[in-house]
Design a protein around this nucleic acid. Structure first.
Lengths: 205, 205
DNA sequence: TAGATTGTTAATCGATTAACAATC
DNA sequence: TAGATTGTTAATCGATTAACAATC
């Protein structure tokens, strides 16, 4: 029997579940149901149960889900039961804002000294970037660099990505409005506010 | 015969097509094909043709798509053939970075004076916010506020959203990690970097 | 026991792809 | 005409929902 891979769309919903559950926990709640969670998120209860059941049996019939327990389970599934290091590439407006962002705490990233900031000036001296990234990574928890951010012209950005990949970075979150080419096994996610806005203007007149 | 509404997922891809086309145009290209566009975006050619055909016939058999023409058409579909005003709510790290962001230019937003920045201090005096938003909006192009950004505690953020809705804002792009409740007819999109990162850590070990 | 809610199956719904006639 | 690529249809694939036995 072959284990089917979990659909990406399911994996993508887990962080949303987690965020809601963490808020409930902060509100002092102990248990919830697929129905309540669904209402908070605008997702059907059936879908939440289906999604969770792909990873195990986390609930109790008649009772629902224990919130702290489910949080822990989802954190393990997402591999964020320990913190990941982040290198923020670029120290301009966006890079600086991200580096100062408080929202990573308790969400699997950047506790204490695990944040590296690399100004673009030094990024452009390739060897130096390479060294910086590697050194930091072995100092902290080897090979862990889920996030990286960058802006600038297209060519530079692709080259930055190339160097990061060479340095062992396995996941890149890019704020730059271009599609990066990365080898198999490296993950990229994009954040482009214009794209979000344009998705909404369609419905406005 | 009833016009089926366009699936949201299709609308969501149009901005991606547009971004690629605009890059091609900047590279001096005149025509492209669904195949080339698909390769650039990692989307099948069939899907691109299917998506575009929902809105009209923009291509020529044997030739492909005229890039400037297709750009114009997609801009019209997305209602970004003219610029929209934006109010950036919050003048902290993120708000400031967004207000200085150069990436909105040529993408339908914030040309010249159409950007309003509202520091959170004044947002919290509700009447004052309400007045500010309305005044600015009538000064510029009435009732057009596709984007708005905000951070802070949960309650404040929901109240900010409420006031913006009252003031006639029809679309909100929120950088805050909470789900906003808005009435029917108001669009909300979210940007939460932690969610993107968590989506990737699942695949890392 | 009665009430509630899970995990799971089967049915439905929707999105993607393959294929090809039309035509530039 | 020959080659290429569209727009569209039908077939495939995958995701969501409804329903319910299991069980707390």
């Amino acid at each position: 029997m072959i284990n089917k891979p979990i659909p990406e769309i399911v994996v993508g919903r887990l962080p949303q579940y987690l965020r809601s559950l963490q808020r409930m926990a902060r509100e002092g709640r102990q248990v919830t149901s697929s129905q309540e969670l669904g209402e908070r998120l605008g997702i059907s209860a059936a879908q939440i149960r289906k999604d969770l059941s792909q990873f195990g049996e986390f609930g109790k019939q008649g009772t629902g889900y224990n919130i702290p327990f489910l949080i822990e389970q989802i954190q393990k599934i997402l591999h964020i039961h320990h913190d990941w290091d982040i290198a923020v590439v670029g120290a301009g407006d966006i890079g600086s804002a991200v580096a100062r962002y408080k929202g990573f705490t308790d969400r699997g990233f950047m506790s204490g000294s695990s944040l590296t900031t690399i100004p673009l000036r030094s990024v452009r001296r390739w060897e130096s970037l390479w060294c910086t990234t590697m050194r930091k990574s072995s100092k902290l928890s080897d090979n862990r660099h889920p996030g990286c951010y960058d802006r600038r012209t297209r060519l530079v950005r692709q080259e930055v990505a190339d160097r990061l990949v060479e340095a062992g970075v396995k996941a890149i979150l890019s704020y730059a409005p271009i599609s990066l080419n990365v080898p198999q096994g490296v993950r990229v996610q994009y954040i482009d506010p214009s794209l979000h806005l344009q998705r909404m203007t369609y419905y406005l007149c």
